[in-house]
Simulated assay, not measured.
Amino acid sequence: MTEITHRHVESQSGLRMHVAEAGEGPLVLLLHGFPECWYSWRHQLTALADAGYHAVAPDQRGYARTGGPLETGEYSILHLVGDVVGLIEALGGGRAVVVGHDWGAPVAWHTALMRPDKVRGVVGMSVPHRPRSSRPPVEAMRRMFGDGFYMVRFQEPGAPEAEFDGDRAAVFRRLMHGASGDGGGAAWIAPEGGGLLDTVPEPEKLPAWLSEDDIATYVAEYADSGFTGPINWYRNLDRNWELTTAWHRAQVSPPALFLAGDRDVVATGAPHAIETMTDFVPNLRETVWLSGCGHWVQQERPAEVNDALIGFLRAL
């Protein structure tokens, strides 16, 4: 049975990153989203290794065993892309296929956008590539969804992590179930005077793809880092808009693949972005929709995701 091993790697960005890895061969980086860590790729690490690849899933900046700096401004998209490029260099240089889910998808897309010389191919899951908008995003989201929308609420100092760090097991149970194909979806708009978790009920039982042991693993992985670092990613949304002026409406040139669940409100809520993605990702090879699947695609449908990834990798 293929073994997943763990170590810390000194990324050339200056961040000491925890990575889980398996296999030997061409490098495939697996970038998790919120609120996850390396563990969300547990099914892909071994499958990719068995297919002849060096699969590496880091805990990204601010997350789990990597942790991160205290300054909010050190979580910009330039820092996140820098970590990925620095990790590619630390793992032998050359080029990698960069795969990202949820928040990891924009990091993967931007790595391919900013450093195509380091990227053999790019895979986005759940979050399509979106060109830079014409105005800062936070105020636009506030006007569209209100002050209770989670990305707007995450701008507040201290309050979001106080809610999320209060009962981490409940956070993972509620969010994983609520945003999955088995849940009823999550509005992610806090009621007046309430919290974000009020929008996601405690599940009566966990879906088949998620166990109490999985929840306990996530809780243990967050034991030292908590939620401040992950939420700091959201606090840089407007700053990211300012920092990416030079790439306004630029194209992602490496070969690309997009995967999403047809019950994922993140993906289904952005039909125009997906329909027009080839305008800005001209080498998009395929868009794969997973029927009955929600947001946590690589955990909900590991076999189908593994087949799509390996097929894409072998075609490069």
Rank of each mutant, 00 (worst) to 15 (best):
S11K: 01
Q12F: 13
L15M: 14
L15Q: 11
L15T: 08
L15H: 02
L27N: 09
L29R: 06
F34A: 13
P35Q: 11
Y39D: 08
L45G: 05
T46A: 08
A47V: 03
A51C: 11
A55N: 06
A55W: 01
D59M: 03
Q60M: 11
R61Y: 10
R65P: 10
T66I: 10
P69L: 15
I77V: 14
H79S: 12
L80D: 01
G82M: 05
G86D: 07
E89R: 15
G94F: 09
A96R: 01
A105M: 06
A108M: 03
M114W: 07
M114Q: 12
R115Y: 14
P116K: 08
V119D: 01
V119P: 01
V127C: 07
P128Q: 10
R130C: 14
P131Q: 10
R132I: 00
S134M: 13
V138W: 06
M141V: 03
G146P: 03
G146C: 03
D147P: 01
Y150W: 14
M151K: 09
R153L: 14
P157C: 12
E163C: 12
E163N: 13
D165V: 02
D167Q: 14
R168P: 06
V171C: 08
A179N: 13
G181M: 08
G194N: 04
P201V: 04
P203A: 08
E204V: 15
L206R: 15
W209K: 05
D213W: 09
D214G: 09
T217H: 14
A223M: 13
G226F: 07
T228K: 12
W233M: 00
Y234M: 00
Y234N: 07
Y234G: 00
N236C: 10
L237C: 07
R239M: 13
R239I: 05
R239T: 11
N240H: 12
W241Y: 12
L243C: 14
S253G: 13
P254L: 05
P255E: 06
P255M: 04
F258S: 01
A260P: 00
D262Q: 05
R263T: 02
T268W: 09
G269K: 07
G269T: 10
D279C: 11
L284I: 09
C293R: 04
G294H: 06
G294M: 06
W296K: 05
E304D: 11
N306A: 00
I310A: 00
I310R: 02
L313I: 11
L316I: 13
